[in-house]
């Protein structure tokens, strides 16, 4: 597990896979956007507005996935004190906050014409807003200490506490009556999205995931390089 956690090895490994990730991201997002905006059919109720889903759903999924990355990396950092885990958690958090914001804004733009409101305080929308504030709180807490290791430890604990929110987001639409529609994809009895819409959505979701991986690798590499430059300056 820690074979790639050695910073020097991580630099070599990430340099090797980064171009592939970036290339695949560009291809998948380009193909996904063409499929979503031009090839996929309009919805029987929503008409063309359904196309917002192809951005909203992948962004929502990555908002949660990025938080899971922050939380797992935080646990590894707390238990095994691995410096690379701290860097992974801290560099994933702003990306997750970005995806959460995209999810909230695209959802709002869809809600106005479809539901008749930009925002309601139902369980799904509120729990995702809480996720956004958790990200912001984590980022602020990490930087609130003069000693970076103390900041990292405080942030890691907050990240683990916030993990409670992930199942709440996922199951909010089943546990409580919400205005937000229930799960369409990962549900018992199979998806309730027509195949002609599910495929473009899958391509977009994969593209978003690789986009996240690419950005995370770039951010972690720059962070490690910046630390190296600082160390060299101190020696010189």
């Amino acid at each position: 597990m820690f074979r790639f956690a050695n910073p020097a090895r991580f630099m070599r490994f990430s340099a090797a896979i980064l171009p592939w990730c970036a290339g695949a991201t560009a291809l998948l997002l380009a193909a996904g956007l063409v499929l979503a905006l031009f090839v996929s059919p309009p919805d029987y109720q929503q008409g063309e507005a359904v196309r917002i889903m192809y951005v909203h759903v992948p962004a929502a999924y990555l908002a949660s996935l990025a938080y899971a990355v922050v939380a797992v990396a935080s646990a590894v950092s707390l238990i095994w004190r691995h410096p690379l885990a701290d860097i992974a958690a801290q560099e994933a958090a702003p990306l997750g906050a970005g995806f959460t914001l995209i999810c909230l804004i695209s959802g709002s733009l869809w809600g106005e014409p479809m539901w008749g409101t930009w925002w309601v305080w139902d369980a799904r929308l509120t729990s995702v807003l809480v996720l956004f504030f958790l990200y912001l709180g984590y980022i602020a807490l990490v930087h609130a200490f003069d000693d970076p290791t103390r900041g990292a430890r405080a942030g890691a604990i907050l990240a683990l506490v916030g993990v409670v929110n992930l199942p709440i987001i996922k199951f909010s639409v089943d546990w409580w009556s919400t205005l937000h529609q229930p799960e369409s994809i990962f549900r018992l009895g199979g998806p309730t999205i027509a195949a002609a819409m599910l495929w473009p959505l899958a391509v977009m979701a994969l593209g978003f995931t690789l986009f996240f991986v690419t950005l995370l690798l770039v951010r972690m590499r720059s962070r490690l390089l910046a630390a190296k430059i600082r160390a060299l300056r101190l020696v010189g």
Partner: peptide, 15 residues
Amino acid sequence: TVLAKHDERYMPPEV
């Protein structure tokens, strides 16, 4: 206020 609730079905009109 009247809000429309969308269900979880997404389909083209032909289907």
